[in-house]
Design a protein around this nucleic acid. Structure first.
Lengths: 152, 152
DNA sequence: TCCTAATAGTTCATAAATGAACTAATATTG
DNA sequence: CAATATTAGTTCATTTATGAACTATTAGGA
């Protein structure tokens, strides 16, 4: 007979559910600010905040999303005036994605929310533990990111 | 001017991407074993491995998914002979979900994969760090789980 | 008890994400 | 320097996930 199954020992279980919970909390906040795009689009903004002027291809790899999905999300963000597409003068196949002023502003809102939830719901963990958790997740991400099928 | 944005400081960013990477690795494995259901269905199985005979409502709360989504996933798992639905004799509104023998077997496969990836892609972190990471994610999950809108 | 809430699950229309086929531009190679 | 292959992005058909309306059952209050 197998030992008891403990779902909390599996990053697959934990990351999926925590990710979904974050979406649930972020969504009404988005709506209340008049932004009617899917929460997943925030992932695109996060990449751009770390440095915009990147291609859709790069966004797709980073987000682990197909190019058609990225395209659709960008359309939504563009319609809300948060990003713009510019043809890359050095390689006209590429489109470089840039944040608008409004797209930059959005960042503050998100960081505020992020800090709020962390302080409210992670009181039982020290800053050190929280940082370890983040660094472990970062390692998984960086180690696996470039190993998924190249269809993206 | 704002400081640089570091996406690796945000659980929202990290959990979404790690979750997606796990899906990418799990999917071909599923297909190769002849299981043609969405990877997300594994979340249902995980709940059942920790104890089956639970309602669809409970699955929805745990998975942070709507009842219609849960219903669709169960349909897929049922078609693959991994779970069965039984009307709860004590409350005929409920349907209790049980694993079949095949559904139990599946667990071994998943745990093997889970361990394999962890050992392969988390070599730079100690067991202690990995456990801290899991416990932090678990706390976020447990603290937020029952606070999302009750529509689920 | 009877009448009204509330609840679990299903169904179906809609939204979101994907895969495959297509276009335009660049890279490669003979 | 053609001819072909590769690449980034778009478009559209299909799959997956959701929200809202509906059914059946139980709970709760007059």
């Amino acid at each position: 007979m197998l030992a008891d199954f403990n779902p909390y020992h599996h990053f697959g279980f934990l990351t999926h559910r925590v990710a979904r919970l974050m979406d649930q909390f972020m969504e009404p906040m988005l709506k209340s600010k008049g932004y009617h795009f899917p929460v997943s689009c925030i992932g695109i903004l996060a990449d751009l905040w770390s440095g915009d002027g990147i291609t859709q291809k790069e966004l797709g790899t980073s987000m682990v999303k197909t190019k058609s999905s990225v395209n659709k999300m960008l359309e939504a963000l563009e319609n809300h005036g948060l990003v713009t597409k510019k043809v890359d003068p050095d390689d006209k196949r590429n489109k470089l994605i840039f944040l608008t002023a409004k797209g930059h502003e959005f960042r503050e809102l998100l960081e505020k929310q992020s800090l709020f939830y962390q302080s409210k719901y992670l009181q039982e963990h020290s800053d050190e533990e929280i940082n370890i958790a983040k660094s472990v997740l970062k390692s998984i991400y960086l180690n696996l990111k470039d190993k998924v099928k190249t269809a993206y």
